[in-house]
């Protein structure tokens, strides 16, 4: 039996983009647990899609709290999701050029959808009151 010795040596690694992205997947995970779970339970289970209409959205967004809540959701959840999609696709695309194209495509995709969501969130329900 050969004796084995184990030495734990702490090393400082200069953070690069991938490392920051990796860490942020964990940080955002902690933020997303309350954000997504509260949102999903409230909208899909407690209220339910059958009870929704434009008036419901207008009423919800009349509250600054829910607008900020939705802004945080949009910010954290979609970035987390698109970065996750990037991680999955990295399993299939290995070349440096391919990954560069992938990164840029996903960034543009993320930005476009994010902006659409952000404009709507700021603009609110675009209909004259009273609704319907």
């Amino acid at each position: 039996m050969a004796a084995t010795t184990e030495t734990v040596r702490r090393v400082k690694v200069k953070p690069n983009y991938e490392m920051i992205a990796w860490k942020w997947m964990r940080y955002s995970a902690f933020a997303l647990i309350p954000l997504v779970w509260i949102h999903a339970i409230l909208q899909d289970v407690v209220v339910g899609v059958h009870a929704m209409d434009l008036g419901y959205v207008a009423e919800r967004w009349a509250s600054l709290f829910w607008r900020v809540f939705d802004a945080l959701l949009l910010g954290f959840a979609f970035a987390h999701g698109v970065n996750g999609l990037r991680q999955v696709l990295n399993d299939f695309i290995h070349g440096e050029k391919g990954r560069k194209i992938l990164n840029w495509s996903l960034f543009i995709f993320w930005l476009a959808i994010f902006l659409i969501g952000a404009i709507a969130l700021i603009g609110g329900v675009n209909q004259q009151f009273p609704l319907e």
């Binding site: 434009l54 959205v57 207008a58 949009l74 959840a77 979609f78 999701g81 698109v82 996750g84 999609l85 999955v88 959808i113 994010f114 659409i116 969501g117 404009i119 709507a120 603009g123 609110g124 329900v125 675009n126 209909q127």
Partner: peptide, 23 residues
């Protein structure tokens, strides 16, 4: 599950955006 959620999330951001762009 992650891919499923991000697929729906993308659709969901767009459908909610309709309240502003095309109610």
């Amino acid at each position: 599950t992650g891919l499923g959620v991000v697929l729906f999330l993308t659709i969901h951001i767009v459908d909610i955006a309709f309240v502003y762009f095309q109610p």
